[in-house]
């Protein structure tokens, strides 16, 4: 009995240590964002602010247009992208889930093959920029690579096949319901678990995406929050040369650069940290839904 208790303690200590390792970088980031620039220059980034100060945030919010815009773009593409993606993917998954659908296997293979082979970045980039001209448009953040994932389509199809009895569809059809009505009124309401899981993943994928921004967006007016963060991190001069920040400052040296970097990153990550406790349950569940049939 005592041995069992010690064992439980040991396991708990291991997990507390691991949890701490997972959280340290976030603590460091947030603590540094509320430290004064002088204390950062003196002590570096610390896990606890040696001198509490909101100067980095007050600089950021002095001219908030850039951040608000980037946030607006991120929210817009995340909402529109996730909704469109769910609609297109469920519409694609439903017909191939129907056992009586002619050409069902051929269409499934057409979708599945995209997981095995791809043309790579060069043709994709040249096609989207030269043929479809999506460079520096919002379409660049919504469409390439993200909208339809074969993996999710197959996941949704498998859910439809396993959980929606053919008899239900048959009898609705006998009662005179149209195909689309059956899909919208019967199939979709029965599929909320898989739609929720896929929707959550797409929400995260769109919110986190910066690659499309990196390759297709050069106009800073169209920067999403991730692209803005990326530019600031990789281009040390970006903040200093950004007119919004320099206008009402005597010289570029006055910018609390070290703290500002952390404050901007904190603004990017805090929404996720705050909402995570509410959706983590669905997220963990969704991961295992997907893992059952890779």
């Amino acid at each position: 009995m005592i041995a069992r208790k010690t064992e439980q303690w040991v396991i708990n200590i291991v997990f507390i240590a691991i949890s701490f390792l997972c959280l340290i970088p976030f603590i460091l980031l947030v603590a540094s964002s509320v430290s004064s620039e002088d204390s950062i220059i003196q002590n570096g980034y610390t896990l606890f602010p040696t001198e509490f100060s909101l100067e980095s945030y007050s600089y950021l919010f002095k001219e908030p247009a850039m951040l608000i815009r980037a946030y607006g773009i991120s929210i817009f593409i995340t909402v529109i992208g996730t909704v469109t993606s769910l609609i297109v993917m469920t519409l694609l998954a439903y017909p191939i889930s129907r056992r009586d659908m002619p050409l069902r296997n051929a269409i499934s293979f057409f979708i599945f093959f995209t997981m095995l082979f791809n043309g790579g970045l060069v043709p994709t980039y040249l096609m989207y920029t030269n043929v479809f001209q999506i460079k520096n448009t919002l379409f660049a953040l919504l469409i390439p690579g993200l909208l339809v994932s074969a993996f999710f389509v197959i996941l949704i199809r498998t859910f439809f096949t396993m959980n929606i009895p053919n008899e239900v569809i048959e009898s609705a059809y006998m009662d005179g319901a149209s195909e689309f009505k059956i899909f919208a009124r019967i199939v979709l309401p029965l599929s909320t678990p898989v739609l929720g899981a896929v929707g959550l993943f797409q929400l995260i994928n769109y919110w986190n995406d910066w690659f499309n921004g990196l390759i297709y967006i050069t106009d800073s007016k169209l920067y999403s929050i991730q692209v803005l963060l990326n530019t600031i991190l990789l281009n040390a001069q970006y903040l200093a040369s950004n007119t919004h920040f320099v206008e009402d400052m005597t010289s570029a040296d006055d910018i609390p650069n070290h703290g500002l970097k952390m404050a901007i990153a904190a603004i990017g990550v805090i929404p996720i940290l705050v909402t995570y406790p509410f959706f983590q349950k669905y997220f963990a569940r969704g991961l295992t839904v997907g893992a059952v049939k890779g």
Binding site: L28, N230, H258, I272, Y276
Partner: peptide
Amino acid sequence: SIILLPYLMSSVIIGYLVYSLLSMETGL
């Protein structure tokens, strides 16, 4: 839920987190 949290972060955010640890002037 704690050990799953890092999986949610975009690589941009991970870049910042690593920078806050490894920055040559100010890293932890």
